Amino acid sequence: MQASFNYVRLSHVLTIVPQNLINIDDELDTRYKGDIKKLSQIKKNVGLQYRYEADQETTASDLGEYGAKILFNEFSIDKNSLDAIIVCTQTPDFFMPPTACYLHGKLGLSEKTLAFDINQSCSGYVYGLYTAYSMIENGSCKRILFICGDTWSKFHNPLNTPNLGGDGISITLIEHSQKEHKSYFDLGSDGKGLKYLFMPFGAFRDTNLKTMKEPEILNKNIKEKQVYMNGLEIFNFATRKEPLVFSQLLQYANYDQDKLDFVFFHQANKGILEIITNRLKINCDKVPLSIDKYANLGAASIPATLCDSVNSYEFPLQKNLKIVLGAFGAGLSWANALMTLDTDFICKKVQIYQKEKK
């Protein structure tokens, strides 16, 4: 589906990662079983080097709360002015109630502030923005806090396989704009591809893997809270679909690709992003990478890359920037957005969570 908005702007973006920094070189004798060739291939082809992991006590909501308080305190955002708080995460604190309701209470938000979750994976950041933009454009809201991301380290990850994911949460403030602020979205889904990237066990379906019509999964000893991915199918999906819908978005917006300042893709895999960039003939200088610093942050990978690349808190924007956000992943789902970052837009370099001492 496609949609455009006229009076909504991206105001502030922050990204928070937990304290524990892991260098995959230190995992040579554990996760990689001394196979230096395999480790080198992962670094070269996937782009992994560092990732951040939360400890057992720290959850996605803790990182979100920490970032929201930075937003309120450092940028003088009145929390009572929020019309809604939306959370998109695959690692909630509870099955019930929504993490947004939990954070609503932790942050002391007004009873008039709506709170709900979105269950979406790697495309979640752009899906969440679309939801917030829709609510503001229709006049029901003026200011929405959107918290997005996961603590992937909580999932089961066998020690003998590369850990592609890192932990991180983004905090985004979306606001009504008095002046025209045109933005365009293009989103889609293909539920038939669910079987190529999903978590079979851990919820309420008693999954029979033999009925999934996915032969590869039968060769895996999948545990509870372990993600299954058919790497080849996902690679083909991403490199085929993203160039198509990216071009479709620009055609819908009637916008010249060469005029873009930045393109922020979901940081799935360095090789995937290089193929997409080459197929679209985008100048690679306009396509920042962050997978080497944080691994795959899932839905938070786009805002993390934006924060480190733009960092307008330290380097205020001298002109408006035209950007595209491009996401793709489990579902299967995809979502792209063309928008403007104006000279008042604020984002900070990715911040490291500082745990309160009890």
Rank of each mutant, 00 (worst) to 15 (best):
V13I: 15
N163L: 06
D35G: 11
A253L: 10
Q257R: 12
E111D: 14
P162I: 05
S61I: 03
R51T: 02
L244R: 12
L325Q: 05
A253W: 13
R31L: 04
L249N: 04
I118T: 05
K195E: 10
K69L: 13
L321G: 08
G271L: 14
T151S: 01
G271N: 12
A304F: 09
D25H: 14
T131S: 12
L159W: 09
D83Y: 01
T131W: 00
A335E: 04
K37T: 10
L321P: 09
L10Y: 11
S153Y: 13
E111F: 03
F265Y: 13
L218I: 05
F155T: 08
D308V: 05
S333V: 05
N163M: 10
T58E: 04
I144E: 00
N283V: 04
R240D: 15
I217D: 10
H181E: 14
S247H: 05
Y353F: 15
N23G: 08
K220D: 09
A330P: 12
F315W: 03
L249M: 10
S183R: 01
G124V: 02
Q226N: 08
I282K: 04
A203V: 04
D150N: 15
Q49L: 12
S183H: 06
S61W: 00
N160M: 08
Y184P: 02
T151Y: 04
K322S: 14
S183F: 03
L63R: 01
K44A: 12
N73D: 15
A3Y: 09
V126D: 00
D342W: 11
E274T: 05
S61Y: 01
N320Y: 06
Q90F: 05
Y32A: 03
V310D: 13
T340Q: 13
I272M: 15
F72T: 06
L289D: 03
F315C: 03
K259W: 06
L63V: 04
L244H: 12
F262A: 03
T340C: 08
Y313I: 01
I147Q: 00
G298K: 07
V17L: 07
T207Y: 10
A100I: 00
Q354A: 08
K349V: 02
Y50A: 01
D117Q: 00
D186I: 02
I24M: 09
P288Y: 05
R9Q: 11
L28K: 12
I147R: 01
E233W: 02
D117K: 00
F328D: 06
I174S: 03
A295P: 07
L338W: 10
Y32W: 06
L10K: 13
Y255E: 05
N119P: 10
M212Q: 13
A337R: 07
V350I: 08
V13E: 07
N160Q: 12
Y184F: 15
F198S: 13
D285R: 05
N254C: 08
H12F: 06
F5V: 02
N119L: 09
L159K: 14
K293A: 00
E175Q: 11
A268W: 09
K43E: 08
Q2D: 07
